[in-house]
Nucleic acid binder design. Structure first.
Length: 317
DNA sequence: GCGTCCAGGTCTACC
DNA sequence: GGTAGACCTGGACGC
């Protein structure tokens, strides 16, 4: 049954704000689910509020320098005032509506690597996950796997246990709830989603989230270091994963990105990408300080153009 | 066709 | 506190 429109609102992001670059990133990352649809400056996607599925239709009605977003929310039942406020706050946080990038851009203008990158991607907001569980599924499946295999694991989870959200003439496949995954056996997750050793970790995480683990909103208002430490109490979530999904992103280097940043920093490939991670993290912190998470997102979404300018293929890794 | 290696990390045991 | 070694699975590679 199709969901009905239950809330309509407008959001006015701090300029500059490029809607397309922010929710439909050049490197191919989705905002909420891999099955969301993006056409003509409109995003049809989904989310969960409490346990209920929502359809979201986000449309840019402004410009880069005078941005405005029209947001329509579709649900099975009407939303209470409290739910409407909660949803508005979640959308504002996850779209980084109030984030002012002025200081980042000022810093970038003085930086040899970043100067042209921020021109390429002017107005792009960094990754901010609408919900915690899908972000945790992503980082668990990224571990120790080539992208193709990670993608296969996520797809099997979505197809076997996810939900279809029907609204506005569209259907968007959305992630399973923690409760649904928590009810499955580790053996089933291992075989049906081909998760391997990750099945035990995902099962444990689903049970934690089902049992009252802080939400993304709770983590957002915590001290960034405290939020990271909290995430790392989850089984299978280490420093890399916690930094990648933390509401205030760190510099989440893995083997793939370490190879790229070695070439950017030191102009050469490394024989030991994993071993180089601590040094790269220190260099990034010294070089870019609190903006290193933004640098991470901007650079990894601009690899083709950076490669062209440097004469080195950074997309091959 | 078959064996081996290793990938967009994390945990544990051991020193 | 530092660090090998194990961990699912499947594609790449050498033979």
């Amino acid at each position: 049954m199709a969901l009905k429109e239950s809330l309509s609102m407008e959001l006015e992001p701090v300029a500059p704000f490029n809607f397309k670059l922010s929710v439909h990133k050049p490197a191919g990352w989705w905002w909420s689910t891999p099955y969301e649809l993006f056409q003509d400056e409109t995003l049809w996607t989904a989310a969960r509020l409490g346990g209920d599925l929502l359809g979201l239709k986000l449309h840019s009605v402004g410009t880069l320098l005078k941005p405005k977003l029209s947001c329509a929310v579709y649900s099975k039942n009407s939303l209470s005032d409290k739910e409407k406020i909660h949803l508005t706050e979640t959308l504002s946080r996850a779209l980084r509506i109030n984030e002012d990038l002025c200081d980042f851009y000022s810093m970038a203008e003085r930086d040899e690597i970043l100067r042209e990158v921020v021109h390429d991607l002017y107005g792009l907001r960094t990754t901010a996950w609408p919900e915690l569980f899908p972000a945790l599924i992503l980082v668990l499946t990224l571990q120790m796997a080539p992208w193709k295999r990670s993608s296969e694991m996520m797809d099997l989870l979505l197809k076997n246990y996810g939900d279809d959200v029907n609204f506005d003439g569209k259907t968007v496949r959305y992630w399973p709830s923690p409760g649904k995954i928590a009810a499955l056996t580790v053996e089933e997750l291992r075989s049906k989603a081909k998760l391997g050793y990750r099945a035990r970790n995902l099962s444990s995480i689903a049970k934690e989230l089902n049992g009252g683990f802080p939400s993304m909103e709770d983590l957002y208002v915590m001290d960034p270091e405290e939020a990271k430490e909290k995430l790392m109490t989850l089984r299978g979530i280490g420093e890399y994963s916690a930094e990648l999904i933390s509401p205030r992103m760190g510099f989440p280097l893995d083997v793939w990105s370490a190879k790229i940043f070695n070439v950017l920093f030191f102009k050469k490939e490394t024989d030991s990408p994993r071993g180089s991670i601590p040094d790269l993290k220190k260099t990034a912190e010294k070089h870019w300080g609190e903006w290193r998470g933004h640098v991470f997102t901007y650079i990894l979404n601009d690899l083709p153009k950076i490669s062209e300018r440097m004469g080195v293929d950074l997309t091959k890794f």
